[in-house]
Design a protein around this nucleic acid. Structure first.
Length: 431
RNA sequence: AGAGGGUUGGCGGAGUGGUCGAACGCGGCGGUCUUGAAAACCGUUGUGCCUGCAAGGGUACCGGGGGUUCGAAUCCCUCACCCUCUGCCA
């Protein structure tokens, strides 16, 4: 969340950036916000004066209680008090209203963004900053992964539909094993790179979903449990980052680097076009997520390293990929800067997003109430949070099946062989 | 899920209606003593907001929210969490 002081410092810059992110009425919102803040402050002053008087009166009564003859004086003072209390009540209500108004505006403002972010409205305005092609010998007829999955009995989409509904695929045989191998590969790579593995709850409460920015912005995208105030996580980012809600870390605790594998659940309401097939978009999918917490001084260096880390995963899998710097209009609600990684799926002739690596600056820290204390001066500062998919499984699987298809079957990338105990032959033959 | 007990400052732990932001102990910080350290002793020690150049002043906060009262950490309601017992279950 943006803080009031952030906005007050340079309202015009905030307005401009919000507009560039596509926030409607950014100017009106910010101005209204600043107005309410001003009014609330004045009101607060008055309330505090009343509170002070009431406190004094209470003390006076306490004194008078000791004297028996003061009963009359007490009564008349009580009358005065009841008058003050009416005022107090009124002020309180108004202030509460203002506070709510401020909160209502603040929670709907997305983050500001980094100077390196290109200005643009749509994904076409994103900048492709890097591309890497890997040449694989493809068969004459290159097919999409859903055909491959069916041919070799790797994934059953229709049975998933019967069990649950569309978007819940069932992985079978080598499909399941390959999935497991990928998870294991991603986790092991992360651990080798200094990430601490965490296993997390898949259900979170309202506050947790708010802290990382999913609420109220993405309320409609999350599954909610009916009889409990819980949401199914749309990404491990939510519980993982929230491990540190309401904390003051000491500087020597930083950096924090975590990795977690979880299933993710998304309603994907409204985004189910006819071109969504196979593994391209699902309601439940697996993902390995990395989260880092840093001091502001170190976070940008760390961001670069995270990006490089995700990049080398794709290098190791030898999937053709490109790295995309998101433009202002395409940034996620909480992001200060984001790089997406897309892999090429030759069967569909499409680029599929498999990772989003984001720097959140202090936006999440504000909501999490997460600070760190400088070792030497004991001064407290907001931390910077970062996260990235490393990686999201289904589209990696899609690209992998399509990229590594041969006339005989699917060739398994050699880096996965240590993790794929049942796939030693390096090729899947099932017809 | 039912019954009972609990939630107080960095930690432990008092406090059941009146000047309580909260005894006491530990820890932390500063000092005395010491060549240095320990021990001992003395002092100090929560956070947010408003106001002030500052010193200071004001206000809010004893799990969250609401209520009773002139006055609430203390009484009432409610929610959350923790502990114990009973039940159920992977």
């Amino acid at each position: 969340m943006l803080t009031l002081s952030q906005i007050q410092q340079d309202p015009d810059k905030v307005i401009q950036q919000l507009q560039q992110r596509g926030v409607c009425h950014a100017e009106t919102l910010v101005h209204r916000l600043l107005n309410i803040v001003q009014t609330k402050k004045q009101q607060q002053d008055q309330l505090e004066k009343i509170n002070h008087q009431l406190k004094e009166h209470a003390k006076t009564i306490a004194q008078w209680m000791k004297i028996k003859t003061a009963a009359q004086k007490i009564d008349s003072l009580k009358k005065e008090i009841s008058c003050l209390k009416k005022q107090q009540q009124k002020e309180k209500q108004q202030i509460q209203g203002y506070a709510q108004g401020i909160q209502d505006i603040l929670v709907q403002l997305p983050n500001v963004f980094c100077t390196t972010v290109p200005i643009g409205k749509y994904s076409q305005d994103n900048t492709i900053v890097h591309e890497r092609f890997f040449i694989h010998s493809l068969p004459k007829v290159v097919v999409p992964h859903w055909d491959i999955a069916q041919k070799y009995d790797l994934i059953d989409f229709s049975i998933g539909t019967k069990i649950t509904g569309t978007g819940f695929p069932v992985y079978k045989n080598e499909g399941a094993q390959l999935q497991r191998a990928l998870i294991q590969f991603f986790l092991t790579e992360a651990i080798k790179n200094g990430y601490q593995e965490i296993m997390l709850p898949l259900l979170v409460n309202h506050a947790t979903a708010f802290n990382t920015g999913q609420l109220p912005d993405k309320e409609g995208q999350m599954y909610k449990i009916q009889d409990h105030p819980f949401y199914l996580i749309p990404t491990a980012e939510v519980p993982l980052t929230n491990l540190y809600q309401k904390r003051i870390l000491s500087e020597k605790d930083l950096p924090i680097k975590h990795v977690a594998y979880t299933p993710c659940f998304r309603r994907e309401a409204g985004s189910w076009g006819s071109n969504v097939r196979g593994l391209n978009r699902l309601h439940q999918f697996d993902k390995v997520e990395i989260v880092e917490i840093h001091t502001p001084q170190q976070s940008f260096q760390a961001f670069k390293k995270m990006i490089a880390y995700v990049q080398q995963l794709l290098e190791k899998l030898q999937l053709t990929y490109r790295k995309v710097l998101l433009c202002s209009g395409d940034l996620g609600f909480t992001a200060y800067c984001t790089y997406d990684f897309e892999v090429y799926a030759p069967g569909q002739k499409k680029w599929l997003e498999v990772s989003s690596v984001s720097h959140f600056d202090t936006y999440q820290a504000h909501r999490l109430q997460l600070k760190y204390e400088e070792d030497e001066q004991q001064r407290k500062h907001w931390v910077h949070t970062l996260n990235g998919s490393a990686l999201a499984l289904p589209r990696v699987m899609a690209s992998l099946l399509e990229t590594y298809q041969t006339a005989q079957g699917i060739q398994i990338p050699s880096v996965l062989l240590p993790y794929a105990y049942h796939l030693r032959e390096s090729t899947v033959f099932r017809v």
